[in-house]
């Protein structure tokens, strides 16, 4: 395996380019600090549909369509679509991609979906199996609340460590030819479970997986701690980020000066009352596909490690007293090679 390095990493011999990206969000995200970077902000949380589930699929359909339209590539030329979401049986992605009639892989990695999708899309291209792949992840606040928590109108209080599911979809179009930004390497996360059981503190459940994959990435590829300009985790939130810094210090990896979290970036935690920050598959996907990608293209970031994080529990496993397994996937993006 000439492209496989160390325990869980790969380096691409012909790094695919991100030739196009799109991010569409809901009203709350549109009031946040990244508003100017999104392709579209919908005032309508239902996206013109009747149900939360249809709304998420419509959001996904619009985002992929926008991503493809910006690229100049035709939809019929897309070899594979990889997409993940939080609804049961991946229905957000499935109904969203239904009208495209393109080869489709539905992914479940909870909020790490964008990392999975980008890794797989890149591997297929570098392996010579595709010229164009789309990596996509979506989430919808109302659909996620309905699936995982309580009905929206129920009068309850959220705990301080709870996060707010992002209504948004981020898509990137990867190509075998292009002028960057390039996806140069990836480390695939293992399922890590340190026995956390609080579903209102998912950051804490995902941190060990994030720490594990980041440490493996640096070790497998023998990188210096200052190799990346920025390292952005998916949705660990304010408290999760603190925990991650502590865990990485125990592993003698100090990257705290370049570490951020998409869940922290997407909202103004104080003004928008989101407690620990944003979460959901769409969180890391929209922040990467808009804010970070623009910064890379402008040259403000040259090398970035993008690490979407997921909490892999289900409502049933939680009710049965199981702990929350975490996962995280690391994707390296470089402006030039």
């Amino acid at each position: 395996m000439t492209k496989h390095f160390g325990e869980a990493s790969v380096k691409f011999s012909n790094p695919p380019s991100i030739i196009s990206a799109a991010a569409i969000v809901g009203p709350k995200e549109g009031e946040g600090p990244l508003a100017a970077h999104f392709d579209k902000i919908s005032d309508d949380i239902l996206f013109g549909k009747d149900t939360w589930e249809q709304a998420e699929s419509e959001l996904m359909r619009q985002t992929i369509e926008a991503c493809v339209a910006k690229s100049g590539v035709q939809m019929k030329d897309i070899n594979y679509i990889f997409a993940g979401d939080l609804l049961n049986q991946n229905s957000g992605s499935i109904y969203g991609a239904r009208s495209f009639e393109r080869p489709f892989y539905g992914l479940f990695g909870a909020c790490s979906a964008m990392g999975m999708a980008m890794q797989l899309g890149t591997m297929l291209i570098d392996g010579g199996f595709a010229d164009y792949t789309i990596a996509n992840a979506s989430s919808h606040f109302c659909g996620a609340e309905k699936t995982f928590r309580f009905p929206l109108e129920l009068g309850t209080q959220r705990t301080p460590t709870a996060s707010w599911t992002v209504t948004g979809d981020g898509a990137v179009l990867l190509s075998s030819v292009g002028e960057g930004p390039y996806i140069t390497a990836a480390t695939t996360g293992a399922i890590i479970d340190l026995g956390q059981k609080d579903v209102n503190n998912m950051g804490a459940a995902m941190v060990p997986a994030a720490a594990d994959v980041i440490v493996k990435h640096f070790r497998d590829l023998q990188l210096a701690p200052d190799h990346y300009d920025i390292i952005a985790t998916g949705d660990l939130g304010i408290y999760g980020k603190d925990l991650l810094i502590q865990l990485l210090q125990k592993e003698n990896l100090n990257i705290s000066d370049r570490l951020t979290d998409c869940g922290i970036e997407i909202y103004d935690a104080e003004k928008q009352d989101v407690h620990a920050g944003g979460s959901g598959c769409g969180c890391s996907a929209v922040v990467f596909a808009s804010y970070f990608l623009k910064k890379i293209k402008k040259g403000e970031i040259n090398k970035m490690l993008f690490v979407p994080t997921g909490a892999l529990h289900s409502v049933v496993t939680f009710q049965q007293g199981e702990s929350i397994p975490g996962i995280a996937h690391a994707v390296a993006i470089e402006r030039s090679i």
């Binding site: 209080q157 705990t159 301080p160 460590t161 890590i192 340190l194 026995g195 956390q196 503190n201 804490a204 060990p208 720490a211 594990d212 408290y239 603190d242 925990l243 502590q246 865990l247 125990k250 592993e251």
Partner: peptide, 20 residues
């Protein structure tokens, strides 16, 4: 990971604010 479950529980407790 260089951390035991018990030790991690303690770390989580320390950084996570409690409800008022």
């Amino acid at each position: 990971m260089n951390v035991e479950q018990k030790q991690y529980d303690e770390m989580v407790k320390q950084v996570s604010p409690k409800s008022a």
